[in-house]
């Protein structure tokens, strides 16, 4: 286990393990599920895993740049959710389904 600063109560490794587990959970969701909404949720899970990493290392290195970066990640996540939901609405209006493997009209 990594040596931690005397004032950091939680080892930084723990953040990395938790972040890796949460990220791979999101990857499994994206790769296996057919429902477009669950895939969007899984992408949000992966972004949260990244945020955990950034905050943990920001505390470990005693530097606030990581926390500032989390703010920008949240901005991108909010924009992605808005555009993703708009695309989902448009797709549902056109096809009456949200199962991603049925959106194959452009397949060669």
């Amino acid at each position: 286990m990594a040596p931690t600063p005397a004032d950091m109560p939680i080892p930084v490794d723990w953040y990395l393990y938790l972040s890796a587990a949460l990220f791979m959970t999101g990857v499994v969701g994206v790769l296996t599920r057919r429902n477009l909404f669950i895939i969007l949720f899984s992408i949000e899970l992966m972004m949260n895993a990244v945020n955990l990493n950034l905050v943990g290392f920001s505390r470990f290195h005693e530097n606030l740049t990581g926390q500032n970066f989390v703010l920008f990640t949240m901005v991108v996540a909010a924009a992605e959710a808005a555009v993703g939901l708009a695309i989902a609405t448009a797709l549902f209006r056109n096809r009456q389904t949200l199962m991603v493997d049925l959106f194959d009209r452009m397949k060669g």
């Binding site: 990594a2 040596p3 931690t4 600063p5 004032d7 950091m8 930084v12 490794d13 990395l16 393990y17 890796a20 587990a21 791979m24 990857v27 470990f60 290195h61 005693e62 530097n63 606030l64």
Partner: peptide, 22 residues
């Protein structure tokens, strides 16, 4: 891939940069 993450992380020791924002 998760197992790879864990194996790699178990072998790393991090050194704090001590940025001063305690």
């Amino acid at each position: 891939v998760l197992a790879e993450f864990i194996i790699v992380l178990a072998g790393i020791t991090f050194v704090s940069a001590k940025g001063g924002f305690t």
